[in-house]
Design a protein around this nucleic acid. Structure first.
Length: 607
RNA sequence: GGCCCUAUAGUUCAAGGGAUAGAACGAAAGUUUCCUAAACUUUAAAUACAGGUUCGAGUCCUGUUGGGGCUACCA
């Protein structure tokens, strides 16, 4: 970080309230220009650590070279200048090479007033940019599992964070509704299904179809091992199993528009969509537009012709088309099979171009697991070679796998955690815990159910989103349902208690008033943290990281708990102080609510 | 083999090249004078290894080792 001011300068006009660090940065820059006559200022500012006196800290080491004095002396010089020339700077101290700057209480009171006045605190002004976020992107042959949950929660939250950064956001889903895997489910259903439907069996549509996919695999494995017993090598047996060949024929029939197959395909897919919709609804995620691969899978072929003409791609003797990426340190990539059909990459290339021509957005974010890092590297590179400058505005939000304590999830071994089961388990645990503690007993049943759902899902969402997306995370179904510590329910509970205090205050007929009194030390601490919020949102947007929001929110909640423990509010006798503390709580509640909303987590007013 | 990601308390996670590496869970000990004890306070406990760059490295570079992923005419 060479130059603090430069790195944040892009946010200057984004904040509807003043950015504290930026303000100080400008003043320090003025100071250094005047004191040392230097034009470019190597400046590093950071929040002052708790154990030192002050609000903002300037790291002086880089300035020592400019001043030609010791870091301590330089820090003292700058501190004196600031105290003398900037009214908001109240005091300073220098520890080693660090200049701790203390801002006046009036300054912080002004900050609180601005926060209270702002109807959209935490949301940055419109950027004029349009961003498309693709996430979820399920296959229609099996139900959603834990990995999809991470994908959906990330996608939904990142979309919200980008919207809070002032961008116009389009959330899209690309459903992989065609291909050999769907034919497998269809075939198994035909063979073993006896006409079973979600209605007749009472099963959720996606689960039903998923069962037949598993059924296919079982039969397939049986046939392969039978063939191997007759002396056929494994590789060959895997290709020759009759049921697989049937599935391949089915795919061919589908592509040729066979009515019977097409009808079956349509009705089985519709079962799956009903099931998915139910899960999406429970998770609280949604899309502005859904693409179906059955309608887009032919899109890339034009592009391949174009690439061949330009000499970017080449054709092999067998007729297959490739792109040679070896000069870029990658491999050769297949784009058309020898039979002329397209592959995943071809479709994705076509879809990307289609989307850009359709929406002309400034950015396209793909929320896809890190096992596809290579795919996206290639995708961007090929688009670039084709001359599409917008290739640079594609961002692959790559997230790590979710692992279980027993190890990696494998659908074939039955070690997946089903999304619906998991959601139900979280809600059930929320219910048990709540009933055990005897809470909510005076609330109607219906309202209780709603709260259990909010808390159970809050726990799940927070647990997943608080982890840096790119890291592999460990999910322990038993231990993850924790309502203490750095968890969603802890923040929800904190919010409910804030609401409770505010309700009591209303009964006492005390109005909140942010400007009623001068701020005390403890209040300044809280205002300081709250004032960081827009910056956290900006950073979370720049890094596509809900984790930053989550950890910020937890700190805020924890700080409230400590504050409330130490300071009297409802029993405060000084009316002005009381009014102000209530206003502070009000804003704190607002900030928590806004922050958690960016994670897609609801905050109940009582729980 | 090649390419990419990753390594921090017993465990799960933090740390914009900066000060004494923060939390939470678990462990040990305590706290019901404002809200709802799902809270608060205190204690013990960590940068895989070896070099390098720098005034300063958990952070950047190189190497070693461990973990994960990709390397399909699947998507």
């Amino acid at each position: 970080m060479a130059n603090f001011a430069a790195s944040w300068v892009k946010y200057i006009n984004l904040f509807d309230i003043m950015n504290v660090e930026l303000y100080v940065a400008q003043k320090v820059e003025d100071c250094i220009k005047i004191l040392y006559g230097s034009e470019s200022v190597p400046m590093q500012l950071q929040k002052t650590r708790k154990e030192f006196e002050g609000d903002i800290t300037l790291v002086v080491f880089p300035l020592a070279k400019l001043s030609g004095k010791s870091p301590e002396q330089t820090g003292a010089d700058v501190g004196e200048w600031l105290t003398a020339n900037v009214p908001q700077v109240e005091a300073f101290n220098v520890v080693k090479g660090f200049l701790n700057i203390k801002l006046s209480k009036d300054f912080w009171r002004e900050q609180l007033l601005q926060i209270a006045d702002s109807a959209s605190f935490g949301y940055l002004p419109a950027s004029g940019k349009t961003v498309m976020v693709e996430y979820s992107s399920p296959n229609t042959n099996k139900p959603l599992h834990l990995g999809h949950i991470r994908n959906n929660l990330l996608g939904h939250s990142v979309a919200k964070i980008l919207a809070a950064n002032g961008h116009q956001v389009i959330k899209v889903n690309l459903v992989n509704d065609r291909g050999i895997h769907i034919c497998k489910s269809m075939l198994a259903w035909q063979k073993f299904g006896n006409g079973e439907t979600p209605q007749s069996s009472g099963k959720k549509g996606d689960h039903l179809v998923g069962e037949y996919y598993v059924r296919f695999d079982k039969e397939y494995k049986r046939q392969v091992s039978a063939l191997m017993h007759t002396g056929i090598p494994e590789d060959e047996a895997k290709k020759k199993a009759p049921i697989l060949q049937e599935a391949q024929n089915m795919l061919l029939a589908w592509e040729q528009g066979n009515d019977e197959i097409f009808d079956l395909w349509e009705s089985m897919n519709s079962w799956v969509y009903e099931g998915f919709d139910a899960t999406y609804k429970k998770l609280g995620v949604s899309f502005d537009k859904t693409y179906y691969e059955s309608r887009t899978y032919l899109l890339g072929k034009e592009l391949v012709k174009e690439g061949l003409k330009k000499g970017i791609f080449f054709k092999r003797e067998d007729g297959s088309v490739w792109c040679d990426l070896t000069p870029d340190g990658l491999d050769q990539k297949l784009l058309l099979r020898s039979d002329g059909t397209s592959v995943y990459m071809t479709q994705d290339l076509g879809t990307a171009r289609h989307r850009f021509s359709e929406y002309n957005f400034s950015e396209l974010v793909y929320v896809v697991g890190n096992e596809q890092n290579y795919h996206f590297q290639v995708l961007k590179l090929i688009l670039k070679k084709l001359g599409y400058a917008w290739s640079d505005s594609i961002y692959h939000l790559s997230y790590g796998m979710v692992e279980l304590p027993e190890g990696k999830m494998k659908s074939r071994e039955g070690t997946v955690v089903d999304a619906d089961d998991l959601i139900d388990a979280m809600v059930a645990t929320a219910r048990e815990t709540s009933l055990e503690l005897g809470k909510l007993s005076d609330i109607p049943q219906e309202e209780q159910q709603r709260l259990f759902h909010i808390v159970g899902l809050g726990a799940l969402k927070y647990f997943i989103l608080k982890v840096d997306p790119k890291k592999t995370m460990l999910f322990d179904p038993k231990e993850s349902i924790d309502f203490n510590g750095n968890t969603g329910p802890f923040i929800q509970y904190t919010f409910a208690r804030i609401c409770s205090v505010l309700r009591k205050a209303q009964e006492q007929q005390v109005e909140a008033n942010a400007g009623a009194a001068a701020l005390g030390e403890r209040e300044v601490e809280l205002v300081k943290n709250m004032a960081d919020f827009p910056q956290v949102v900006a950073q979370a947007g720049a890094e596509y990281s809900p984790a930053l929001i989550a950890n910020y929110t937890f700190d805020l909640a924890k700080e409230f708990n400590q504050y409330y423990h130490d300071v009297s509010i409802l029993k405060e006798e000084n009316v002005a102080v009381k009014q102000q503390r209530l206003a502070l709580l009000q804003q704190l509640g607002k900030a928590l609510k806004t922050a958690m909303d960016l994670l897609g987590i609801e905050l109940p007013e009582r729980m």
